[in-house]
Write a protein that binds this DNA or RNA. Structure first.
Lengths: 198, 198
DNA sequence: CGCATTACATACTGATTGTTATGGAAAAAA
DNA sequence: TTTTTTCCATAACAATCAGTATGTAATGCG
């Protein structure tokens, strides 16, 4: 733990605030398009301070992603705790919409996974790995729902999960295109209206 | 028409081939990430030749988008000609998957609309305008299907169109993440299994 | 106080971006 | 052939990118 090594000149900015500002930038622009100038201006710090505090751009992004997950994606856990497959889907979709339309349009996960398609890009792998973790959790929940008899037609856990993810991601794409929240909610409502079971 | 103003030295490359190569690059990398070096190498021409033949990067992209629409999106028209709402959806979804998994993963429209989120970026507007045109056509088709009694539940044309678009885009996103074709097809099959009507 | 340590501010690095100026090569028109 | 027009090849352009070297200011410790 490096809690209080308060020797030398103290920092003039709050690390958490700066990270939140960086998250905002990454969220609205994506990884590649977010330049260090954009970041430092939004964070209110200089380049050397950024590197001293966060390492480099990639490390900063990963820390911003941590913040994003802990702050913005609490609804995923809430969804997993829902009693039936339908309510799981309901919470996921509407939680996603609320999350998406809160500050900036679009979903950071979707944005980042498409934005940085350059070469090796460990960022891409990193984002996808996190998404995969969530997907596995949702799929396990769907399997339990199948065992519980939540569905009134035969479904596979993986297929229904990928289907739900597709609607989820499509909503994020359309949000990024400027589609208003009410229309996004209609997508979610339509999905739930077609949902095969309780 | 500027067909044969064959005065002076003739071109040493085929414009259509070069444009097809450029499309390939834009498709796999997106607009911003596709550098002039990437483009000229893939096209087999030099930078000045590119600028003489196509104008600049933005104009090249728009011409590549024209080629993309005419070559790859024929299935949209085919889908609009389908007899029922269900078959329209079927052709759209499977046509999309076939298109997506043919050469490079991902959908150029989705990729481009998310990739270039920088500032004004007329590219973004351009892509979205084309997508909007397709969406309007699909929505009109869905309205006709409603009038024809294709649906067995009450639906709005805009809502069902946006829902279908969301699945469509979600499939493209997952394709870009490397999800194999069979899984994408399961998404389409699930969507059709839940489709409310004929 | 003086010293060590840490952070800030300015300005720079080398690489890469899209775009273009310059000079030579090739082919039709004179 | 000479001229004219268009193309290709090399190399440069200014701007921007991520990342740093350097010097100074501010703190805690002795």
């Amino acid at each position: 733990m490096e809690k209080t090594a308060t020797r030398g000149r103290p920092r003039e900015f709050d690390t958490d605030e700066a990270l939140a500002a960086a998250l905002q930038v990454f969220w609205s622009k994506g990884y590649d398009a977010a330049s260090l100038t954009d970041l430092t201006e939004a964070m209110g710090i200089t380049r050397p301070s950024l590197y001293a505090a966060f390492g480099n751009k990639e490390a900063l992004f990963k820390q911003a992603l941590d913040l994003y997950e802990s702050e913005k994606l609490a609804y995923v856990q809430s969804a997993l705790d829902a009693p039936t497959a339908r309510t799981v889907a309901e919470r996921l979709l509407f939680g996603n919409i609320a999350n998406i339309t809160s500050d900036c349009p679009g979903c950071l996960g979707v944005i980042a996974s498409m934005t940085c398609n350059g070469d090796q890009s460990s960022i891409r792998e990193h984002v996808q790995q996190r998404a995969e973790t969530s997907r596995q959790a949702i799929m396990a929940r769907m399997q339990r729902a199948i065992d519980d008899g939540d569905f009134n037609v035969a479904v596979e856990a993986e297929a229904i999960t990928r289907y739900l993810s597709a609607v989820f991601q499509g909503i994020a794409v359309q949000a990024g295109q400027g589609v208003p929240r009410e229309e996004l909610q209609k997508i979610a409502e339509a999905t739930l209206a077609l949902w095969p079971g309780r």
